[in-house]
């Protein structure tokens, strides 16, 4: 029995909380408007003897945070170290939703794309060729309806197979124009040296080119805090033994 952690992210109002409820049996509030969930919420489900901790996040339009709820979501995807990130897409507005999915693919490599609201899409006559999207994106793409609970077994199975390595993800990396790519090449090694390998240096270069310094300050802060914990932990140990 092992423990894994899953992040549930996506545009606002795509059914993240509904899927979360379906998986965990919990009762996160849902509502047909963007911004219903403003806090992280953890839940647990078990599948084939493994325990999965799943985190419902506030919706976000991009990994560039604008408001506090979006920042919470982004920080968890970036710093929360989930074993798998599930990106929920709204089948009726795939174009905008894919915009976020592409960004997540740039950032981490264990991603599952979940196309939700497939029942609505069918009603509107929208047919989605998930096999093609899967080939193009290099990660599993699964169609579900969180509300009608269709496609969930497939999703659970895929999650466990990605974690166990049976399915290998090779997330599609978008190729930007030459100039941007050249700039990325300059920044990447510098970032690699400073930040380390925990977070994709390519993605960080893009954020930096985009002017997002705050993200880096946050990384530094987190590192400093970790160090502090280490040091304080050590001193605590010493005094304890000293008393002895």
């Amino acid at each position: 029995m092992s423990n894994f952690r899953i992040a549930l992210c996506g545009n606002p109002n795509t059914g993240k909380s509904t899927l979360f409820n379906a998986l965990t049996g919990l009762k996160q509030h849902t509502g047909n408007w963007a911004g219903k969930t403003v806090e992280m919420k953890k839940g647990v489900y078990t599948y084939k003897n493994d325990q999965y901790e799943i985190v419902d996040l506030p919706g976000t339009y991009s990994l560039y945070s604008n408001s506090l709820d979006e920042e919470i979501a982004r920080d968890f995807i970036v710093f929360g170290n989930p074993d798998i990130t599930i990106v929920i897409l709204d089948a009726t507005a795939l174009e905008r939703n894919l915009n976020l999915a592409l960004q997540v693919l740039e950032m981490t490599n264990r991603v599952i794309i979940c196309i939700n609201l497939i029942d609505e899409a069918e009603k509107l006559g929208i047919n989605i060729n998930e096999k093609l999207l899967m080939r193009r994106l290099g990660v599993p793409v699964i169609k579900i309806s969180a509300r009608n609970k269709t496609g969930i077994p497939m999703l659970l199975d895929t999650v466990s197979r990605v974690i166990s390595g049976v399915i290998q993800c090779t997330p599609f990396q978008i190729e930007y124009d030459e100039e941007t790519e050249r700039k990325i090449k300059i920044l990447e090694p510098m970032i690699d040296r400073i930040v380390g390998h925990d977070i994709s240096a390519r993605w960080l270069s893009l954020r930096l080119l985009d002017g997002d310094r705050q993200l880096f300050e946050q990384i530094e802060e987190r590192k400093a805090r970790n160090r502090e914990v280490l040091i304080n932990g050590a001193t605590f140990h010493k005094t304890k033994t000293g008393i002895k």
Partner: peptide
């Protein structure tokens, strides 16, 4: 600024 980003994100 921020609004430009938000608008771009929205399409």
């Amino acid at each position: 600024g921020i609004m430009r980003r938000r608008l771009l994100d929205l399409g």
